[in-house]
Design a protein around this nucleic acid. Structure first.
Lengths: 335, 335
DNA sequence: TTGTAGGCGTTATCAA
DNA sequence: TTGATAACGCCTACAA
């Protein structure tokens, strides 16, 4: 910076002003300084800057996955589920205009410790926390750190933190309505993990809507949000209830697997069995037939999380708030 | 830190020594200081530290994906292909013991600019660059930045940079050998994108081995390393060459799609058509039948990249070097 | 509008 | 083995 100042014949303070876009600098001088910056190839030192501003201009995207001992690794799950790509895309898009970097941090419980340390050390100004597991202690721990944070869904236990969610029960209800509307009467469902609020809520929403219309006792199996889990679930379901004519599956990945199993077992989709998924992720388009599903506006939700987080960072005293998005039915070929 | 020093009745310098594990500090004093640290809940300020050490203790994992206009988004591809999960796992594992953070940065060409700026600003001490695309300018640009870097594969155009790779041609040859050994004579292949060196090399390796044994003119279609591309490729291949009895597919994801198509078309696997994939990723286990494939030790390769990078960071003058791993055949049920 | 000077929280050098 | 003290590179009152 001294170099630039010298080359431009001004003081370091002026160089600093130019860099930070202060309005109180003469147009001519600004230009001279900018040229000097270009010529010297000067790049500000972020460490020095954040030492004084106490800002890092980056936020963490912490993706906390529960331990599933029989699964290979949580990283495999994260880098295999299109959901996280959408989250990342949405958050990046919202942060980019503000010149804020997104630091992606996948974690399972074994390294919560590292993550907390990372956050405590002040590497980032705030946290976007994607945590689905009901027992996950991370949301509370992050909250106790006192660092600005926004959670991806209603926390399992009440927490004075901002969160963004979709109306899960409404989504499930849309699926039920659609299946009923197209004439299905023997419905069943493959739910997500019941220790994950979204898995639980979608199941509840589906069942309670049907129960209110006299259709109680819907056959249910619990899946794990993976393609394989959906395949297994469908097989079990059809083995015990061969007469099923409508199936609601807790997410698209499982629906993809279920679709395959259903067709392997000789049922036509949607004629014999209509199938509705949940998410409207890229997996819905990998399905044959194309998957009718409940759209969750994940990118927009992630962007909203980022906006709320930036607001918290800008004014630390701000009260927590929650934003809920509405799901919609996306009609394709499977139902 | 002043607080800690006061609480412990020592100077800041001593506190610093304790924190950094200097051996030149009295055991008793060390203990007192440590207690003071615990009591005050002191956490070092990383910005101040890296301002003076000129180290950030973190490295970037830059995942550079080529633009594929007809695909939804590069993030979707990255968070959908198990390959990147394995890379991340391997790199994290190697870095963790050294207390170095991994900053994951997915990018397509539209934001190379941001990435380069990020690197130039000194946020990280070095770069692990995952770049497959032949025309990708990023490896060269990163190299010109002068920041320590290790690339994930032999760069398309010669570059004085360290890289880690697997012997792609040998892998393809193993596949060919195996198919021949089990009696297949009418072989075909679905290659990866030919503008990606690994796609090209696997194809070359497969064809040239066969050509040397009098089997030239192997039917070939080019795929895109996605499940869907594999499905399409297999359909095209079988439409034109219905007599095929052995198929080598450029990666497991495509093999999964191909397997589905082949069986949809009424062929039994492996009896009518034997199928060999490449990678040994988790997708191989999602296949039915389980996929026989060429194992690429991705985790170990990523770990090696990290080791080499740390060596470069430790001694900046170090000459670039390349490390090549050997692929192996993993026998399962599809061939 | 510009320059001067002090301080941000560490580490590192040098004496003691 | 410990303690002063000087950087590290930047921002920001405050003074000019």
């Amino acid at each position: 910076m001294d170099q630039v100042a010298e080359a431009a014949g001004v003081s370091r303070a002026t160089v600093s002003r130019v860099i930070n876009g202060a309005t109180t600098v003469d147009a001519k001088i600004r230009e001279i300084v900018e040229r000097a910056i270009a010529e010297t190839g000067y790049v500000p030192n972020v460490a020095a800057r954040s030492l004084v501003t106490r800002k890092s201009n980056s936020v963490a995207l912490v993706i906390s996955e529960p331990d599933r001992p029989h699964d290979s690794s949580f990283l495999n799950r994260i880098f295999t589920d299109p959901y996280f790509g959408r989250i990342t895309a949405g958050a990046t898009g919202a942060l980019r205009p503000h010149d804020i970097h997104l630091v992606i941090i996948p974690t399972d419980s074994a390294d919560h410790h590292h993550v907390l340390r990372y956050l405590r050390q002040g590497h980032v100004d705030g946290v976007l926390l994607i945590s689905s597991h009901e027992q996950d202690p991370l949301p509370r721990q992050v909250h106790e750190l006192g660092i600005p944070a926004v959670v991806s869904a209603r926390p399992a236990s009440p927490l004075a933190a901002s969160f963004v969610d979709v109306d899960q029960r409404l989504g499930a209800r849309l699926a039920a309505e659609h299946l009923l509307a197209r004439g299905c009467r023997r419905l069943a469902t493959i739910s997500g993990p019941l220790d994950i609020p979204s898995g639980q809520d979608r199941l509840d929403g589906f069942r309670s809507y049907l129960a209110n219309r006299g259709l109680a006792g819907v056959p249910t199996v619990e899946g794990d949000f993976t393609r394989h889990g959906g395949e297994e679930g469908a097989r079990r379901l059809l083995a015990e209830h061969p007469g099923i004519d409508g199936l609601f599956v807790g997410n698209d990945l499982m629906a993809e697997g279920a679709l395959r199993a259903v067709q392997d077992l000789g049922r036509r989709v949607p004629d014999d069995i209509a199938v509705v998924g949940f998410d409207d992720s890229s997996a819905a388009l990998d399905c044959r037939p194309l998957l009718t599903t409940i759209r969750q506006p994940v990118e927009e939700m992630a962007a909203e999380m980022a906006e709320v987080l930036m607001a918290h960072i800008a004014s630390p005293g701000r009260l927590p708030r929650s934003v809920t998005f509405q799901p919609t039915l996306v009609l394709r070929d499977s139902a």
